[in-house]
Simulated scan of single mutants.
Amino acid sequence: MPMIKPDAMPSPETLIDYGNGEVGAVMFYYAAEGQDYGEIAREHGFSFRILWLEDDADADQELLVAYEEGAGDICARWNPKIPDGFQLAAKHDTEDGPVAIFIRKREKGAS
């Protein structure tokens, strides 16, 4: 069995590139289907925001049409604007459409 030393562990917000435009933070890698990513982020000390492609006012309308027509490379083509102070934590397609998740470290004592 491969072993990893604690000092070699990636931080929870480190992105995994799935090679198709989809990415996800290490903290979400073992999430069970239906598990709340916001809850996972909070457990790791992060605030959490979510943006659906269909709600992205900055998204190119051609991209939305391509998604509706079944284009498979939407996540690779979608570049959601990252909110100030946040970083991208995940971008992937779901049953409800493409979604981007943003996180930022919470200040101590903040909920």
Rank of each mutant, 00 (worst) to 15 (best):
A31G: 02
E69Q: 04
K81S: 12
F46A: 01
A71T: 05
I74S: 01
H92N: 07
I101Y: 04
M1W: 04
E62C: 02
N20V: 11
L63R: 00
S47T: 07
T14V: 09
G24A: 10
A110M: 11
Y37T: 00
P12F: 13
Y37R: 01
I4W: 11
A71S: 06
D36K: 10
F102T: 04
L53W: 02
D96T: 14
R77F: 08
T14H: 11
V23A: 08
W78G: 05
M9V: 09
G109S: 06
F46G: 01
V23F: 12
Y37V: 02
I101F: 05
G97E: 06
K105I: 13
T14Q: 10
I82R: 02
R106M: 15
E68P: 07
G70K: 02
K108F: 11
G38Q: 06
M3L: 15
A31P: 00
R77V: 12
D96Q: 14
I82C: 09
H44T: 03
M9C: 06
F102C: 04
P6C: 08
H44L: 05
G70Y: 03
S111T: 11
A89M: 04
C75Y: 03
K91M: 08
D73R: 07
A76C: 09
F48Q: 03
D93P: 03
E39L: 13
I82K: 03
R104D: 06
G85P: 01
A110C: 07
G85C: 02
A32M: 15
W52M: 11
G19R: 15
H92D: 09
E95W: 13
I50R: 13
G45Y: 08
A32I: 12
S11P: 09
E13H: 14
R104I: 08
P83R: 02
P6E: 05
G19T: 09
L51R: 12
I82V: 15
E68C: 10
F48T: 04
L64E: 00
D84Y: 03
A32S: 14
N79A: 14
Y30I: 06
P98M: 04
L15D: 01
A89R: 01
M27D: 00
M3R: 15
K105P: 00
P80M: 10
S47V: 07
E43W: 13
F102D: 02
G85F: 01
R49E: 15
Y30T: 04
G85M: 02
Y67S: 06
A89E: 01
D93M: 08
K91Y: 08
L63G: 00
R104A: 12
F48A: 04
I50K: 13
Q87A: 15
L53P: 00
